[in-house]
């Protein structure tokens, strides 16, 4: 991509978005944030009217559009093996209004599921067939700390196209890949960018970044963690933990899974389900021996995996600072506090 290419920037009025999406809808299945039962999640939409633009962030992460929580990998009898992985996507897809933090989480998952030594066919097909249209975050929440883990509310990385609400009924649109450019060109009524739009963008961005009040020092955290595996700190931080799977299942980077078989009348299906390191069953062996005996060990694993093991293996922190675990934890376990405690240890 040629940076700073202004032809790749356009302005779209809010009321034009519907038309634009209608055009895109001819070739793409569009998934966007929709509010149902008081929760915002990504659903396929028919019209832009369904989109809930004012969302802070979705409750569940859009990661499940790439790595579903429950998915059939194979089925037996064996004559059916091989037929199972048909084209997973019927139509190319667009995820519309994905937040920059969630886009970043996909880049982290790529390291796991689309690496040199391993390409997960199910994940890769979706990743290749789904375009990411980002919506810059103009309202980061108190619990957000994206800027502390290498992201930002207006971060453009890993997106095909990014939009930013300029607040005056206009959205700034920037294509970041060729595919993104293609999406933009679909509608010739998009307007050229004026200098004042650009100023507005800079101002909005600055304001948004200021709103990310939680500042954590994550640099060197992995080294610190190396030293405190047996620290009494873990006795303290896990105390409140209920051992539920909310933090892992709402996390945009958690990616552990379990393979299991299910029989129905006609066949056996081998299913891949998400799993959580917070569950005792995660590590219990057939003999009954469980190397991670309590919430203490399990929570330590979760923190270590994100801020130490993953860093060692892939060079990055497995956390994008979306704050979902903080918002949804039933007993208000706050990863920001834990990081702070680790640093002070």
């Amino acid at each position: 991509m040629r940076k700073g290419d202004r032809l790749k920037e356009k302005i779209i009025k809010k009321e034009q978005i519907g038309k634009w999406l209608e055009k895109l809808g001819k070739d793409y299945e569009i998934w966007a944030p929709v509010k149902k039962n008081g929760l915002v999640s990504f659903y396929p939409i028919q019209s832009a009217k369904e989109i809930y633009f004012d969302f802070l962030n979705s409750k569940k992460t859009p990661k499940d559009l790439f790595f579903p929580q429950s998915e059939v990998l194979l089925s037996f009898p064996k004559e059916e093996v091989g037929k199972e992985v048909k084209t997973i996507l019927q139509k190319p897809r667009i995820i519309f209004a994905i937040r920059p933090c969630d886009a970043k989480s996909l880049a982290l998952l790529d390291q796991v599921f689309d690496s040199e030594d391993y390409q997960d066919p199910y994940y890769v097909e979706r990743r290749e067939g789904i375009l990411l249209v980002g919506l810059a975050c103009t309202h980061p929440q108190q619990s957000c700390f994206c800027t502390s883990v290498g992201g930002g509310p207006f971060e453009k990385a890993h997106l095909d196209l990014v939009m930013a609400d300029l607040g005056d009924g206009k959205y700034f649109v920037e294509a970041l890949t060729q595919l993104g450019e293609g999406l933009m060109q679909r509608d010739d009524s998009l307007q050229d960018v004026q200098e004042k739009d650009r100023e507005k963008l800079a101002k909005t961005k600055e304001e948004a970044e200021e709103k990310v009040k939680s500042k954590l020092v994550t640099k060197g955290l992995e080294k610190k963690l190396d030293k405190i595996f047996d620290s009494p700190l873990w006795d303290r931080v896990h105390q409140r933990c209920l051992g539920c799977g909310i933090c892992t299942y709402l996390c945009s980077t958690c990616h552990c899974f379990a393979l299991l078989d299910e029989k129905d009348k006609a066949r056996v299906k081998r299913i891949r389900n998400w799993d959580s390191c917070m569950f005792p069953e995660f590590t219990v062996e057939a003999s009954g021996h469980n190397p991670r005996i309590s919430n203490r060990e399990r929570m330590r694993q979760r923190v270590m995996h994100k801020f130490n093991y993953f860093v060692e293996r892939y060079g990055e922190t497995a956390c994008v600072g979306c704050g979902r675990c903080i918002q949804s934890c039933p007993v208000n376990i706050d990863i920001r506090e834990i990081i702070e405690e680790i640093r002070n240890e």
Partner: peptide, 11 residues
């Protein structure tokens, strides 16, 4: 305990 055998499932 293992599930995938190829370093991905995490357990």
């Amino acid at each position: 305990r293992m599930s995938c055998g190829i370093g991905k499932c995490g357990r």
